[in-house]
Write a protein that binds this DNA or RNA. Sequence first.
DNA 1: AATGCTATAGTCATATCTGACTAATCAGAG
DNA 2: CTCTGATTAGTCAGATATGACTATAGCATT
Lengths: 195, 195
Amino acid sequence: MDERTLLLLGMLRIESQHGYQLNEFIEHNLGRVTDMKKPTAYALLDRLEQAGAINSRLEQEGNRPPRKVYAITEQGRQLFVRLLSETLASAEPYVIAGDVGLMFLDALPLEDALKLLEQRLQTVRAQVAEIEHVPAHHMGLGVDLVIEHQAALLRADEAWLTQLIARLQAQPAKEAKEAKDAQPAQPSTTAASGA
Amino acid sequence: MDERTLLLLGMLRIESQHGYQLNEFIEHNLGRVTDMKKPTAYALLDRLEQAGAINSRLEQEGNRPPRKVYAITEQGRQLFVRLLSETLASAEPYVIAGDVGLMFLDALPLEDALKLLEQRLQTVRAQVAEIEHVPAHHMGLGVDLVIEHQAALLRADEAWLTQLIARLQAQPAKEAKEAKDAQPAQPSTTAASGA
DNA sequence: AATGCTATAGTCATATCTGACTAATCAGAG
DNA sequence: CTCTGATTAGTCAGATATGACTATAGCATT
């Protein structure tokens, strides 16, 4: 949530903009950097204005509905530098949603698991391919660095997955045994999930 | 949010448990897998019970306050397999919070940026070290795989960061130029953030 | 000159999540 | 025995986030 604030301040630091503009840019170009949705952005802008980090003036173009153009204030710049420093210096341990699936890999028959992991691998490969084709100097922001970073992580992910699949294919016996070892608990009522 | 449901179902599939038990385990052992908090878990358990995926019976131990022991139902097992399959097959493009910072790296003087990135690198290294010392067969679940996966990603992260720092140190001129190029917009009111 | 379509600009009711709290039991110190 | 602090078990008000919606303007088509 602090990163979202940082993002908005950073964008306004580059250029004063109205809400719609900010949201369009985020939606179209920053899908990899944030998943903040429109209403959240408006809410944060309101809060930032309350706090004096940005201010807004109404602007009328033609006789379209008037829109609020937000500009960063001196106070906002200070907040920006503070948030940026904090964000750069720290490394929040990330939580990867898909990892929950790995925890229960042994609940599925090996064949099924392999099929699903191969699907996942396809998806990851597609993501790598896509990100490698994003043109450099994408938007003049440091978005390039983010793209690089994400590409590096995605490639690591691809490599790991590939190796996992190979391992599972090569040692079905061993992995099956591990799966057994993993549940010394009571066999419980029904056993229908078919492990 | 679906992963959270999957996690709870998966844990109950292994063994019937009461809420407190589930939460303790998550808090102490699954910090890397999920960041779900206690009240969220209770809310999801309620919802799963409404939906018939789990049921609960009250259990009294000594004369401590009675507690609800949740058990997965046949319906719940089916849901579990479905969610697990979906999760394993897909690869949601992850959003790394810290990446927002990278976007605005050029807003700081190079020296400052380097100092901050080095701090980040320290943190990442500490995380790598920590994760490499987690004992294997940690809890008998597939948690091992998750640990491996996260270790792989963390090492990739470390390598990328190291290389970024080297690049920034080696080519201060070029990077400084890029920083200039990055903002052909208006110089705006105050220029106090000192870029 | 009415119709439908897209872009613009934002709002709001609802769903979701969590920090802070309640409340009972137990174990040990004095 | 009774006070203190830890453990167990959970709840709830309030903060956050978002899907779905409103509403106007411009433009092309018929």
